[in-house]
Structure formats: C-alpha cells, structure tokens
Design a protein around this nucleic acid. Structure first.
Lengths: 165, 165
DNA sequence: CTATCTGCGCAATATTGTTTCGTGAGGGTG
DNA sequence: CACCCTCACGAAACAATATTGCGCAGATAG
C-alpha cells in the first residue's frame, strides 16, 4: 500500500477530491495540470492502493430531522481484548453511533452519536449504552454548535507538514 | 430549505449517495427505482435545498503519513460569546484540528486532531493549543484504534427512526 | 367533466469516462 | 557514448454517462 510514493500531482489530486469528490476527471486533470487519461490512471491507482477509501455525500443531519449530536465518553470495567472487541462490535451495530474510537487514558471509548431529539437519545443511552455489558460509566456531552467539521487531512499543511510517505 | 418534504425515493437517494458519492446517476436511478432524468433532477433539488452539503473523497490518514489521531478536551476560562467565538476562529485556522465542537458540561470544546507523529502533535499542543488565550486546561486522549467511522446519518434506522422532516 | 399541476419516462444531444496507441524523457548497462 | 528498458504523458477513438426538451399519465380542484 505504501509501495508507490506520491508526487506533487498525486497530493493535489487527493486534496482536490477531498474537497470535491464529484469533480469530473477532466476538471480534476485541468486543476492538477495534466491531461485526462493519466489523471484518471492516477486516481485509479490511488483508489486501489488504499489512499482513497471511498466517496461520500455529506448530508446535513438537521435537515433530515437529526437535531441532536452527542459525544459519549465510555469507561469499561474490563479492558481485556475480548471485552474491548465485544463492545466495539456493539457500537458498530447501533445506528445512532456514527463513530467509535478507542482511546488511551481514563476514557476507554469516545462515541459520536446522532439522534432525532433528546428523548430518543436518552432512550438509547439508558436502554442500550449504559445497559450494555461491561460498561462501567458513560459521560455524555451535547454538541452546542460545530465550529469546524472537515474530516480528513490538512493538505494546506501550514503546520501539518507534508508527509514523508 | 424544509419547504419540500422528502419521499421514500429521496431518502434512498441520500442513503445511496452517502454510501457512495461517486455512483453514476444511471446506477443511482436503477437502485432507487426510477429512470435517470428524474433521478438527476431530484439530486439537484436535494443539493440546492441543502440536504446534500457536498461530496468528499475519504482519504486514509495513515497512508499519507498522519499516524496520530487525538481528541483534545478543552476548557476555557471565559465562556462569553466573544471569547467562545475567538477560540473557534483559532481552531478553524489550525490545520491539525479537523473538527471543533462546542459542548455543554464541564468541557467547553472537543477537538479532533491529526498529526504525522506524536512529536508534531506535542508541538502543536504546547505551542499553539495550550498557549492560546483563554484556554484554562486541555486533556488529550490518543486514538488507539477506530472501531467505527461513518459520519452522517443512519438510514438503516433500525433505531434512529426515520425522520419527520 | 375539464383544466391544471406535478412528476415520470423516452429520445436526442452534449459531455465525460475509458481504452488504445505512439512518443519522448530519464536511468542503468555494455 | 550508444543502447535499451521502463515509465508516464498526450492525442485520438470509442463507450458510457449526463443533460435537455418534449409528451404523457395520475392527482387535485373547480
């Protein structure tokens, strides 16, 4: 997956596609300064090599009735690999849980959740999350507002310096 | 933006595009059960109405040399709107900060950060984040591994019940 | 019953994606 | 220095898709 190194053009391609994943190949080629065929070839290579994991439409949660976003900090009673994996498997299945990250430190997992309203989240919290086996404690924090939401990589590496890969 | 209600086909379109944002329109039309032209028209409406905020390639951070993901829990000294906004503006500019959510409770902000390695994150942490005005305390947690990472909306609403919008 | 509105599907055209092929620029070797 | 090998690019041809315009059917109201 790291067999082929990336040149400047490849990085530009990734940056452009991260910003606009539906850009046409001709437009992409124009922006990165090469013609369409080699540009498409590079994109295919980047996809096959795993640099590009997929393409997704960004949906506005609120417009679809999901007014509530919550971060849930979860501590478990046992941190054995078996129990960690069991909790992760549960998290994967819960629809309201969109992200599940295992952390170091006091907190074992942080979950990003969405819900139509507070009531349905509370139901999930009490009936599913805190009731799950091995869960020691859950601290939740409502998202008041989102100041920045740009998952991915800083290509404008003003500080996040360009990689060595 | 909520003027037009969504029918079952619209929701299917959103679900499909969230799963694969580069699906061709004919494929999308086939999956949702209508012909291509009206399908494309619906997509345009959904885009213009703000249901679809954009399309993005999902880039693998590690393949580009960003080996470290960190959640930073930030508390401020002052929670006046002026000071909150000032901090948010800073967070928007820091390249390593990919998400910045304002929370209720003890923690004022949670930041999702990426970095090439621990050293560069520590530099950011000590030189930028904790050194920023009005920052009272910062607790950081390294991401050990990611069990689920599907930002967006649960369309398989097994529990996150279909919306009312 | 008729008029109107809305959304679909069909067909034609413009645009784009994809493959094929020939060329030229490095890089290593005799 | 000449040779060859590899690799990536670009031009052209072809296939697929996106996009537009038009006619038609079902729903609703008058």
């Amino acid at each position: 997956m790291h067999g082929t190194k990336l040149d400047e053009i490849d990085r530009k391609i990734l940056a452009e596609l991260q910003a606009d994943g539906r850009m046409t190949n001709v437009e992409l080629a124009r922006r990165v300064g090469i013609s369409a065929p080699p540009c498409l070839r590079r994109v295919r290579v980047l996809e096959d090599a795993g640099y590009i994991r997929g393409y997704h439409a960004e949906i506005d949660p609120r417009s679809l009735g999901f007014e509530v976003q919550v971060f849930a900090m979860v501590r478990l009673q046992s941190q054995s690999e078996r129990d960690l994996a069991a909790f992760e498997e549960r998290a994967r299945v819960w629809p309201l849980v969109r992200e599940c990250h295992m952390l170091n430190g006091e907190i074992d997992f942080i979950l990003k959740c969405v819900a139509p309203d507070l009531t349905s989240f509370q139901n999930f919290l009490t009936h599913d999350l805190t009731a799950a086996p091995n869960v020691a404690s859950v601290k939740t924090s409502l998202v008041i507002r989102v100041a920045k939401d740009e998952p991915g990589i800083p290509f404008d590496g003003t500080d996040g310096r360009p990689p060595l890969s």
